[in-house]
Write a protein that binds this DNA or RNA. Structure first.
Lengths: 241, 241
DNA sequence: AGGCTTGCATTGTGATCGCAATTATCGACT
DNA sequence: AGTCGATAATTGCGATCACAATGCAAGCCT
């Protein structure tokens, strides 16, 4: 404790609640917060070293994006569990929106984007070799959204972001169990080739295939009974803000 | 003023921020808040007779759902304007998700649902005759979502709700200009027929056609230059909470 | 000794206060 | 009289306090 309180003088960078939001969001996407575990505003606030207020704001956003769920009786919030129905709908939505974004990004791709993707993909492969699931999750997210952002479709991009936010925790759990050996990375090469040649339909197919492979694994895991409240002694471990 | 403050004793019905959310949401869907006009937390709070705090919470949700926008420089919030790009993406998303929901609802339709739809549709026709745009907006929303809720697809339903929230203000503006004479209601009969016979593809087509007609009007209006900041002396006029 | 109740700690929610920044309004100066 | 600058008001953000409700656990009673 005994954190210095510099009165947060200048309205410098970004609002605190935004930083808190990003922290929790990143923790969810990379699966640092396990599904099913309950979190409290004050505990999160204490962990991040801020007052409960900006945490409240961030949590409101995340609840609105369905990345966090709030028990209507308890009012206590937790990471929602992923039922088979939810997974089916999320897969359907992803299969529609993400290939569409890739197809829209293809004509707008350039050398810099491909280089950036190449770098991310190499980091991803490295993570796979080492077996670093966290790093794989981050890199995979970065790869997909580096493409999607290029589509210049703000509304669709936001929808895709919301979908990732909802399945993120489970991707982590599933991939953490399956092991990093069988994770899909091969389709990324196809996607990069398609982008390089500005082949919209090729990019669409590559992303669709990439999604299918990943979601197949998740569906298998959920059907195997991983749907409910995994992660026993889940320490929250939010990244430091 | 001099509002009584009964200390909000019992944790009775729902939280205040939820009621505030519904008020603003309803105002947006029915177009009571015009796009482009700036609103402030404290003014909204004063109008609703609550403290700025629950309004903040409600606004956070709405911003997360992109029903409200917040100027990154000013930090001042307003109803986002609808650009041609935004409209195109919203239309695409609606055209994908809403027929899908209708198709899923069809096999689960029953007599009670059809009766309910019939009642809503009669109210809608009545509103058309009288020329009550507000009432038409409410009835139209009720009609569509009475169907969509039947699909039992929570994730997709939430996405559809978010989309309506984003175009709501503009539907109101556009339909308010076009007049209620040429509003699409005929497709509703097709939809009800399809639901009555549990014809999934028929329901899908009917909703798709209904959307097309409505969106055509909006696109025409936006291209005609209604995209930016309509409603001059827009009084906010939130429904009473 | 077991089931139930009472007490305390924790939680979410709302209100109020303080602060920095932006906006609006009005006065002064050329 | 028109434009610029300074003061006052408003705004969003964050912190702290207050309160009702819930969760948890120890203690009591039979």
């Amino acid at each position: 404790m005994a954190e210095q309180k510099p009165r947060r003088s200048l309205a410098d960078s970004r609002a605190v609640h935004d930083q808190v939001y990003d922290s929790i969001r990143q923790a969810l996407i990379t699966g640092k917060i396990a599904p099913g575990v309950g979190v409290s505003l004050r505990s999160l606030a204490a962990e991040l070293g801020v007052s409960p207020m900006p945490v409240r704001d961030a949590v409101r956003r995340l609840v609105a994006e369905r990345a966090l769920a709030i028990n209507p009786a308890n009012k206590r919030l937790s990471v929602p569990s992923l039922s088979a129905e939810r997974l089916e709908q999320l897969e359907l939505a992803r299969q529609w929106i993400e290939p569409e974004l890739a197809a829209r990004a293809a004509p707008r791709a350039d050398e810099a984007l491909v280089r950036k993707l190449k770098a991310i993909d190499q980091d991803l492969e490295e993570a796979l070799r080492v077996g670093d699931v966290d790093r794989y999750m981050v890199a995979n997210h970065a790869f997909h959204f580096a493409i999607y952002e290029r589509a210049g479709a703000e509304v669709l991009l936001a929808m895709a972001g919301g979908l990732w936010l909802q399945i993120g925790p489970f991707m982590r759990v599933v991939f953490g169990r399956v092991g990093t050996g069988s994770l899909p990375a091969d389709r990324h090469a196809e996607a990069m080739d398609a982008l390089k040649t500005r082949d919209a339909e090729g990019a669409r197919r590559a992303i669709a295939a990439d999604l299918s492979e990943g979601m197949d694994k998740m569906r298998a895991a959920v059907e195997a009974g991983a749907g409910l409240t995994v992660a026993p002694a889940g320490q929250t471990v939010i990244t430091v803000l």
